[in-house]
Write a protein that binds this DNA or RNA. Sequence first.
DNA 1: ACGCATTTTGCAAGCGTGTGCAAAAGTTTC
DNA 2: GAAACTTTTGCACACGCTTGCAAAATGCGT
Lengths: 337, 337
Amino acid sequence: MSKSFVSANDVARHAGVSRSAVSRAFTPGASVSEETRKRVMKSAQVLGYHVNQLARGLMRSESGIVCLVVSEMDTPYRARLVRALTRDLQKAGKVAMLINTDRSDGGVDLALRQTLNYRADASILLSGLPDKAITKLCLDSGQRIVLINRDDEIDGPFHINLEDQQAAKIAVSAFLRAGCRSLAFVNSEVRTPSLMARERGFLSAAASFGIDVATTHHGNTVYESGRRAAHSLLTGLNRPDAVFCVNDLMALGFMDSARQDFGIRIPEDLCVIGFDDIEQAGWSSYELTTFAQPIDQIVQASLFWLNDTLGNQNVKSVTFNAPLVWRKTIRGNHQPT
Amino acid sequence: MSKSFVSANDVARHAGVSRSAVSRAFTPGASVSEETRKRVMKSAQVLGYHVNQLARGLMRSESGIVCLVVSEMDTPYRARLVRALTRDLQKAGKVAMLINTDRSDGGVDLALRQTLNYRADASILLSGLPDKAITKLCLDSGQRIVLINRDDEIDGPFHINLEDQQAAKIAVSAFLRAGCRSLAFVNSEVRTPSLMARERGFLSAAASFGIDVATTHHGNTVYESGRRAAHSLLTGLNRPDAVFCVNDLMALGFMDSARQDFGIRIPEDLCVIGFDDIEQAGWSSYELTTFAQPIDQIVQASLFWLNDTLGNQNVKSVTFNAPLVWRKTIRGNHQPT
DNA sequence: ACGCATTTTGCAAGCGTGTGCAAAAGTTTC
DNA sequence: GAAACTTTTGCACACGCTTGCAAAATGCGT
């Protein structure tokens, strides 16, 4: 058996200084002479010492742990967000604890409570919505909360949102400029605020042009639901010639079904716009024109707010623009410069 | 300001017992009378007390933290594995710490050392390969290590592998039964053991039938590399009529390019087999016949080994079979029952 | 009621670290 | 060289928890 772990005591003895000196040597702002710091570092190197973050987190108010609360994290958009968040969290000297809330609805609350047990500095919620009581509990415990695309009426967390309605409006005008006259909106049964905002925005923008919109709500925001939406929208006599899908996955499923089950050509017969700009949207079978999630901005905003120890109470929310990425599912060349 | 956190002391006072009593009440095997346990739990409920896992991990040998060391975790296969692992880890009362090793090569070692700072009970490496010295360091610190699809000569960790060569052999015979005569193998420049095993297996199986195989090595194991492979394999005069791609992403890129850039029909002119069985392989634009990663088995094996505190030294590795999922990229109906 | 075996309980000593406080060491000024 | 000041250092306590050990409480047989 090995000698387990080397503690600050060991390196103190080895360097011939007190244990406090070691502690201070590893604390950025502490008062240590350059000479002893060098010596401590040298001994630490030799013995292979690393400060025990558990113990440090016990003393300090900050544990360095940030929880990512996610469900269905293998979804392309979520996976990319998680990847970017973990990368930048590490770069900021923090570490990500991943909490999976796949199962029941109470999963989020349970998970968020779990984050308290590990004294996480913050929780970033990519999906699901915490109960207000739990949110308050977390905030009272000194934890920060970031809600991404989850702008409900909860007060206290930092909200990061997208200009969903604005995007939907742009989608309408893009369709109209392409000469489309019969619009459709493909949504899921998931009633996320951002998804609903897209629907609201699309309907109201269309209404302002005096156009009716056929709307569907099928299952989850996944590929298969897109296919089902295609079946219910394209079987009738008066097919739409433009579809805004709430989500890229649904858009891709819709496209596949439209082409293969109905022989529809895209974009000649049907224009499609999606949302998220997942990798697959750029694949040459699809070349989907879609709104891009500003992932870098989202991550950057999250981390900035988390690191901002001072006036974090001032900023309550940020709203980003989701730019339209033009590919080939809208006919004509009406793309604005 | 709120009163921060409620400690075991608070609940002890509230319940009229000693600190040790409440500690024992939260420790499964401890010696407490049922009566006081009830009372402690009641008080804990009222005060909103939860065991501080940081402090608990300081005393106990186990912190309950398991690190997942991953790079490029937004890849469909990896994302699914991470999702399944976190789900089941939580179910087992542990929590996943996600370590991103995207950047440099030394990232893995750095990350693995980081896991020591948080006294993780174990590390599961989905990608990247640790230096031997670091591995030894982790093992000496009482940490367990699981290597998934990374069976190198490192001793100590638990290895989970796939029957890559076996799968490649099956691919060859599937192609031959479909009447293919000109085989190709699409690989990346990534020299992962499992990828190389697939190549070796494919080449040797083909050789045993006296067949030469055209092989390509392009970039990373991603969609775009599959496209590039298609360009280098299909521009020549004697095109292959069967391609085994080391990876689904490459297979999908290959298919798209073959169809759109070269007008090749699949499976009439060209048969394709992939590996991983990612979600996109099942999309109706592809319907890719591919080997499925036995994700559930992998996860189950990992957790079983992690929880097996006793004879874990006996079992050193497990090798799973990757079953072939028959879809529509192999012509004919030669699928064995 | 008593002795004995068996829980149950509280005390206190840790686990590895941060940090206030006062003493020690070093620096400047006259 | 002493006084006044600043920097560095070590002591000791705190953080919230677990656990060995011995004392107290309980059960049980006679």
